[in-house]
Design a binder for these strands. Structure first.
Lengths: 135, 135
DNA sequence: TATTTTACCTATTGACACAGTAGGCAAATG
DNA sequence: CATTTGCCTACTGTGTCAATAGGTAAAATA
């Protein structure tokens, strides 16, 4: 299940994209517009900054701004960054310890295929797509 | 992320299916074979019994047995029962309160489509498929 | 009938994540 | 210098996960 972290992050990115491209948008505005607790959103946006998906500018007249064009962000990368992983089962997580059942596990192929399915879906939807209702 | 509850449940059902169809299999055997804590597995199997996916027979010579043929169980229903829900976001959960953003939410269609994708996948894989490596 | 084997039930635990909240420091602008 | 903004650390309450513990009920066998 995708938590509020991932969902709020997507909405935050969309909100930035919907404001005029080269304006910096204070977090307080977005928080109000999206009806999300400012303090909580702050915490989530910090992850986006660390991941270089947005840039934060301090001081008066500051705020946040996208570092790329909206069509260059996929939902997949936003979710993976904020949720930590998109793996559907623990053993498909990148930094998971080797599973001793791996060689003969009869369910692993099912999880793997689903993983591909999911990635194929979320990594081919962009922020621009969402805004333009193309999904 | 699918927890051990769902994953162990699938393995338990597969184990039952792999034993001769009309035998009742004591939980202790399956727990040993699958290397799962007996007590914990007990808790999970209780959900399967309540959901009528398996039948438990008490007493000497007792154990568990499938109530249908392996090809009549889908992975989807096992996961949905044991995990509580398969919804990828809270607002798609059956017993979720109505979301005030529903009417104009630009991400909802994305979640809905993914939900369909996922259900289409997991509700078309059966226990028999897993055993026969058909996935 | 007594014993053994099995399922079934309630309760508890430690660790961790979620969804926030609080308060202050750092940086930049007017 | 004051104001605005981002950034940082720390804390909290609630809930779930993944078990563990210790029993009771039911059914078969000796």
């Amino acid at each position: 299940m995708i938590s509020t972290k991932g969902r709020y992050a997507i909405r935050f990115m969309m909100d930035l994209a919907e404001q005029s491209q080269d304006k910096t948008v204070p977090l307080e505005e977005t928080a109000a517009r999206q009806d999300i607790s400012k303090k909580y959103l702050e915490m989530i946006v910090k992850i986006l900054v660390k991941g270089k998906l947005v840039k934060g500018i301090s001081g008066k007249g500051g705020g946040y701004r996208l570092t790329r064009k909206p069509e260059e962000y996929t939902v997949g990368e936003i979710l993976e960054l904020t949720e930590g992983t998109l793996a559907v089962v623990a053993c498909l997580n990148e930094d998971a310890e080797q599973c001793p059942r791996e060689a003969f596990c009869k369910t692993l192929p099912m999880w793997r295929k689903f993983d591909h399915l999911m990635r194929d879906y979320f990594f081919h939807i962009t922020i621009a797509d969402l805004i333009n209702g193309k999904v």
